[in-house]
Design a protein around this nucleic acid. Sequence first.
DNA 1: CAATTTTTGGCAAACGGTTGCTGAAAGTTT
DNA 2: AAACTTTCAGCAACCGTTTGCCAAAAATTG
Lengths: 340, 340
Amino acid sequence: MSNDPVSPSTRPATIHDVARESGFAASTVSRALSNPGRVNAQTREKIVAIARALNYTPNTQARALTSGQTGSIAVLVSDITNPFYFGLIRGTQQQLKAANYLQMLVDTAESSDSEAATIDSLRRSADGAILTASRLSDQQLLALAERMPLVAINRHVPGIPAVIIDTPFGIDQALDHLASLGHRRITYVSGPDMSWSNERRWQRLEKTAQKLGVHPVRTREYAPSMASGAAAAEAMINSESTACVVFNDLIAIGMLERFRERGVRVPEDISVVGCDDIFGADFCNPPLTTLTAPIERAGRMAVSMLLSRLEAGADAPPPPPMLLPTHLTVRKSTGPAREH
Amino acid sequence: MSNDPVSPSTRPATIHDVARESGFAASTVSRALSNPGRVNAQTREKIVAIARALNYTPNTQARALTSGQTGSIAVLVSDITNPFYFGLIRGTQQQLKAANYLQMLVDTAESSDSEAATIDSLRRSADGAILTASRLSDQQLLALAERMPLVAINRHVPGIPAVIIDTPFGIDQALDHLASLGHRRITYVSGPDMSWSNERRWQRLEKTAQKLGVHPVRTREYAPSMASGAAAAEAMINSESTACVVFNDLIAIGMLERFRERGVRVPEDISVVGCDDIFGADFCNPPLTTLTAPIERAGRMAVSMLLSRLEAGADAPPPPPMLLPTHLTVRKSTGPAREH
DNA sequence: CAATTTTTGGCAAACGGTTGCTGAAAGTTT
DNA sequence: AAACTTTCAGCAACCGTTTGCCAAAAATTG
């Protein structure tokens, strides 16, 4: 091949260049490229050939202006620091790429005011948004959903399409597991009070524990970071529980570290169950027994849901929330309860 | 407050709505909002007030059409599966957000053909791009750089602005460390042959090892994943080296796992040094001695570099590559060489 | 107070596409 | 062969901004 795959550094060819070169009108070129049935096969062929030769790429901005379609989806995460989101982002990225959409990654780390404002400014640049762990109120969320197609992850608000990882379902398995190992007093190491998932997990734990004749205890809230695992570990040491279920793996792994520093053996002295099965849960020390969540799959589902919603139009009835099951993955951080 | 922060579900206000409401022309509104000096202070105030009341958000697409500025930057990663990139993405995200840019995250997982094509289609939707571990040839990269502002990470091509994590510098420290522990034969566990960083690391290791009177050995290439760590570990076991420096932490952690399964003790039998210090390197078992790279900082730097390049204009001379130092973080995976 | 300069706001033409409408050409039916 | 239908391509308006140019108004100067 003598000619470069990359043309000289002139400005990109427009639809008008293709029109001039081919002798057809711009409108015909437009239709030839995006509305195949609307134009003679021969004409289309000719136009397509010329477009390719000119290395023509439609300008997404301009297209968005009339069609209203931007070809990109915003993915909002509340804290890009949390590895849980990595799986999610990976999932959304895969699916978006497959559907030829672009992913706009946005970190909303701030107050809910800024979150609403951010989304609002995005409304023009994205065809829809995927919200993970949104801090918006139900009303804010609903108001937003009227203005822009939305899918929420791990958040249930009636009327808003959602993908929900059914960790409570896994909680039952975790409690069965712990109860059968002889644990009679189990602490739930709580995540942020504002977190919807956190509340759900605790409620399920409380209920199921009572059924199993196990005594449930709840800690104060801890930020979802490894660092706060240290404090949580101390709290566990001072408690009388022999096992804990932790809001997420990040805190759990932090606790493991602290336990080792303090000479507390896991699982001989204390059993630990995490939630999510993030990257690292399998190779930490000891490997963490955890509720494996299909994180990537959740990301992919959310995208599919959003995309099919875009096709269906906003007036279509919102689909029911999609529940993704979790399962307990037993590793080395759980064992028989210690004797008193 | 009686009125919602979110207006009713009508379509968003345009500049014309603001114009009509305020009695000024659209052009004046435009100038009032984006070209402060060009308009009377009072008029501006009035317009700003009305714009706010109408909850007006400029349409980025339309703006991009005339101004040529999209307000977003593309970040290309070759494999979003690799946690190394998370740090990077986090860094770019932070800096972009601070500068009020949007991040378009793109996974180029494929052949270099598709990479070039992807970037080309992005040219219209982004003001610039950050390339991490690009598989493009030097020429392709240079051609691309003519058409769109670029910053490369960990890739040096003369004429292309770059941020380079100076791992080779750290390699020296690692070798000093290992040599002083009595290791006399050190294996470099190689990453992908095509990787620029991989080549640099090996060359430095080879050179420095010889200076220190240590015998350097190089393995075949391994894919940068935990899974390939198993094979790499086997290779180490069958070799006569007592220590290894591994292309990256991902492989290294995979090796650690395998060593444990095989009953090989780290660091008693074999010492392992990783590269990058990714999430997890501190809590794996044993915690990994590694070359800590300022990953997030690299992301931030790349963004700053790109942004200042956008301001300076493409004709400004390309800045020299920015070298970011690494340092050895000693944890528990390295120890005295075993006796023969 | 006339002449000149500076401010300030409006008109209209882009930017690069899409799309409703129109009419010519071609094909079909009687 | 006339009447009717379908296919196909072009015209022109429009999407929401920005910006060059112009003129009215205001401020400055002589």
